[in-house]
Design a binder for these strands. Structure first.
Lengths: 103, 103
DNA sequence: TAAGGAACCTTGCAATGCAAAGTACCTTTA
DNA sequence: TAAAGGTACTTTGCATTGCAAGGTTCCTTA
C-alpha cells in the first residue's frame, strides 16, 4: 500500500541532478527527511540491480572518488509509476483523515 | 520516516465510528486502500496493547460476536501526532517531486 | 608516515505487511 | 441433530525495509 515512498524520493532527486550518496542525504535532509547511509546504499544497489539506475565514478577535489547516479529510461518510467501511486495514496488517505463526520 | 500511515488510517476510521475488523477493511477498500486480515489483526492487537484502543464484544444478527474498537484518550493523542507528521511528510515529499528544475 | 576525514559497503536486528492456515461460533438444511 | 457453510477472529512464517554499528579504502594534511 505505502511501498516505495523513499525510492520515489531518491529517484526524484537523481532525476533532477547527477548526485552521489552524500548529496542525496543532504537533499533529503533539506526537506526534513532523515535517511542514513545504512538505508541509502542498499537501496541504491537494489535500484541499480533492477535496472533503474546507472552510475559512474568521478574524482573528487579532496577524498576518494565518488559514485554518481543517473536514471535509466526504465528508472524514469518507474519514477512515474511511483509518483502516480503516491499521489493516489495521498488522495485516499486524506479522504479518510479529513472527514470529521463523527455525528 | 514514513512510519505509521496505516496505523493512522485505522485510528482515523475508528475515531469516527465504532467498527469491527471487517468494517475497517471495507472502509479502507472504499478509498482504494487494500488491507488484509493478516495485516489488520496484529496491528489492532499492537494498538490495544499500547493503550491506544479498547474493544468490547457485540452480538451479531448472524454469525459469531464481533469485536468493536474504540479509541482511548491516548489513542486520540496518538492519532493527532500521526496526522501531524503525515502532513509534514506529504509536504516534504511534494517539495521533492514537484520541482522540475532539471536545468 | 601517522592521523583523520570522506566515501563506500556490509552485517545483523527489529518492525511491518502479507499469504496461508487454523480456530471458534452461529445458522441453515437435510 | 448432525453436517455444511459462512462469518469472524487469530496465528505462523516469510520477504522486505529501515537502521545502527562496524568495516574498508582512498586521499590529504601535519
Amino acid at each position: 500500500m505505502k511501498k516505495g515512498v523513499l525510492e520515489m524520493c531518491i529517484l526524484a532527486i537523481i532525476s533532477r541532478e547527477e548526485v552521489y550518496a552524500s548529496d542525496i542525504i543532504e537533499r533529503l535532509k533539506k526537506e526534513n527527511l532523515i535517511v542514513v547511509e545504512g538505508t541509502l546504499y542498499p537501496m541504491l544497489s537494489r535500484l541499480k540491480k533492477a535496472g533503474h539506475l546507472d552510475h559512474f565514478w568521478l574524482e573528487s577535489q579532496a577524498g576518494p572518488p565518488r559514485k554518481y547516479y543517473k536514471l535509466t529510461p526504465s528508472g524514469e518510467e518507474f519514477l512515474n509509476q511511483l509518483t502516480e501511486s503516491w499521489n493516489t495514496m495521498v488522495q485516499s488517505v486524506s479522504g479518510l483523515t479529513s472527514k470529521k463526520s463523527k455525528q
